[in-house]
């Protein structure tokens, strides 16, 4: 934000901050990333730890919501089974735009150690992913850093067309 030196003793003490629409919209979006509670496996425990008092996601404005309609970012924390794949797509479709997806941990990234018939080999086969977090499971610090990277990504884009159609197909 462009900040100008203001003499608060003059001009009636009027505080003025100049900015652009993009920046103020992205400032708002990136600092209130409401996340969909999506703990699928043990990564969900780390995600909960990130939300709890020690790591404290509230500082970032990241508050977990139980409804996809209130959420901006879906943190896919855990193993996605093929049985569950249709539901993750449905929940993703229910989220309002702009929306982002963080794939948390090896299982969500590539299927991880579950090289079997029942596991989706990477959640990006179903929904488009913005950020992949490595680890099994990633530490809460990794998830915090991931959210900060996502904030950076949001701020770097224009607000109007921040959501270019991200589609698999």
């Amino acid at each position: 934000m462009a900040q100008h030196k203001i003499n608060y003793t003059q001009d009636g003490g009027l505080p003025v901050a100049l900015t652009s629409i993009d920046k103020i919209v992205n400032w708002g979006r990136s600092n209130s990333l409401w996340a969909l509670t999506y703990g699928l496996a043990c990564c969900g425990i780390e995600m909960m730890a990130s939300g709890a008092s020690r790591f404290d996601f509230d500082r970032y404005g990241t508050i977990f919501r139980a409804s996809p309609r209130q959420a901006d970012v879906m943190i896919v924390a855990g193993t996605l089974t093929k049985k569950h794949a249709e539901f993750i797509k449905r929940l993703y479709d229910q989220m309002t735009e702009p929306r982002w997806v963080i794939s948390m941990g090896s299982c969500a990234n590539t299927g991880g150690m579950f090289n079997t018939y029942a596991t989706v080999q990477g959640v990006d086969r179903i929904i488009p992913v913005d950020l992949y977090l490595p680890g099994c499971a990633p530490r809460p610090e990794t998830l915090q850093y991931g959210v900060m990277l996502l904030q950076k990504k949001i701020r770097a884009n224009k607000a109007g067309n921040a959501q270019k159609p991200k589609r698999l197909m």
């Binding site: 093929k82 794949a85 249709e86 797509k89 989706v120 086969r125 179903i126």
Partner: peptide, 8 residues
Amino acid sequence: WYEVDKIY
């Protein structure tokens, strides 16, 4: 192809 066939 289960999840791909079913969803897309």
